[in-house]
Every structure is written in C-alpha cells, then in structure tokens.
Design a protein around this nucleic acid. Structure first.
Lengths: 136, 136
DNA sequence: TTACAAAATTGTAATCATTATAATTTAACA
DNA sequence: TGTTAAATTATAATGATTACAATTTTGTAA
C-alpha cells in the first residue's frame, strides 16, 4: 500500500486521488507552497482539478494534524508536512521560507499556564543569506 | 511632550493625531487588536476617521519597528507594541491571543545560518484555560 | 457485484482583509 | 505665512479564502 494511502487510512479519511496528490506534493516539495502553488502544479497533470478541492484537501489534512499551515507571511497560508519540531525563517525580500532546525527548550514551561498546547510555531523574519549577498 | 509624540519624533515621523491615537490605543490595550477593532473603537470619538488611515498608521508604525504585526491567526493581522521579547498563545476556540512571557535561548543560534534576523515570533496554538473549563 | 448513504469534488459566486488610487487636507519648516 | 511633501479620505480594486448547490465518488452492506 502506498505510503500516502496508509496515512489517510490511519486517520480514517476517505482515500481520494486528490488528497493523495496534495499529500505527495507536500512530501516531495520542501518549499512550503501555498494552496495556489499546489493547485497550479497539480493541475498540469490533472486539468479537471478544482481549486476548492485543494483547499478542502488541505483543510482535511490539517485538521487531522498530518500537515500544518504556516502563517508566517501574513498574507497567505503556506503548508508543510508535520514532522519533528522545527522553525521557519521568512525572507522579507524574496519571500522564501527556510527551515530552521532547532527548537525551544522553554516550550515545556507552557504546562504552567494551563492552556492546552496543540501547535508550536517559531517564525523568524529578516533578510536571507542570498538576498544579503545580492544587495551588497 | 506627550510620550507618543516623543516616539514619533524620535523616529522622524510626522506627528498626526491619528498616529498618536493608534499608538496610544495599542499602548493602553493589551488585547492585540486587529486594524478593524482599532478603527471601530477610535471612530466613536473621531467619526471622520477613515479605515485606510488606520492601515496607513499601522504600516508606518510597523516599518519603524514601533509596533509589530502578529500573524498568528492566519486570517487577519493583530498588532502589538514592540517591547521585550515575548511569545503569543492563540486559542483556536475563542480566538483570544494571550502573552506568554518567556523566550527561546536558541535564537542566538540564528547567527550561524547567515540570515539577518529582524523579528522573532513564537506562536503557540491550542485551547486556552478558560475554554477548557467551559468545554468540560 | 450492486445499491445506498455519506462524504468529496466541482464551478461559481460571495466574503473579507487589505491595498491602490486620486483628490483633498495638513504638518513641518523656510 | 507660504510652500512642499506627506497624510488623510472615500472609493474602487485585489486576492486569498469560503459558501453553496449540483454532481460524482468512496466505503460498506446486502
């Protein structure tokens, strides 16, 4: 059984080709794409695909915790497969989102507050290495 | 000289009553309001206020680093006066944003990556204490 | 298999936050 | 006090996302 079918099955989700394609896309592309980028790319091989379907698939996958929405840009959502905790750097110049592989030890303090934690996002914003070089 | 006038002056910004009002509003309200909430509240004492002016004032204040846009909700921007680093908890049920007073020691590692860091946002999402109580 | 019910997909229209525009007014400074 | 650049205003436009209703498909049980 394909990896993605198993993930959907394990989450009691109906197996549809669109969901598999969206999931595979996010697994293969570590670019943190937007719904529109996913839609545009998948549509080339599947012209009948509707953008609403991409939104629905993303919502379904997100509500099961399989993927996460990244709100770093402030203007549109980017998506990422959920895996070990990591953070994101957002370049204000080129808009690229770069993975940052560390996590905060103080997150454990959250239990003191009494809130139920479901997601932790670390967003760092600035100018990326490449844009610094270009700019100078 | 009023506190807010001084802040604007120190940043070489033109002094306007709208900017002062927006800045005072953010200083007095620790609720992380949206542009619309600020607009609605300020409009009661100043009926000629335009929503575009609120957006402009927020943009100007943000570009000078006086305030920060919080992208935690994913659907609209919330604003906060810039002060010591702290993080934010977002309740998925009631939508409230709560200040979390700790910060991550690993942020210093960012220099290793070669990117220029301008902002650090820690967003924690889940269900807040109050909503947990209500729900049970 | 075949049929059924629930859920997914589709295309279109609507929504809502934000931005663009152009005319008017105001702040800062000579 | 007059001038100039910038801020304000109202309105229109944009763009991401959601709502909706008709159609199709999935999962399951006869």
């Amino acid at each position: 059984m394909e990896k993605y079918v198993k993930i959907l099955k394990d989450n009691n989700m109906k197996i549809t080709s669109h969901r598999i394609n969206v999931l595979r896309y996010l697994d293969k592309h570590c670019t943190h794409p937007t719904a529109d980028q996913i839609y545009t790319d998948l549509k080339t091989n599947n012209p009948s695909l509707s953008k609403t379907t991409v939104y629905n698939a993303l919502d379904a996958l997100e509500s099961h915790g399989i993927i996460q929405a990244i709100t770093i840009s402030g203007s549109e959502l980017h998506y990422d497969i959920t895996h070990e905790m990591h953070h994101h750097f957002y370049c204000k110049k080129c808009g690229k989102i770069i993975d940052i592989e560390f996590c905060c030890p103080n997150i454990n303090k959250m239990s003191e507050y009494g809130h139920e934690v479901e997601e932790v996002h670390g967003y760092i914003k600035g100018i990326c290495k490449k844009c610094i070089k270009k700019g100078s």
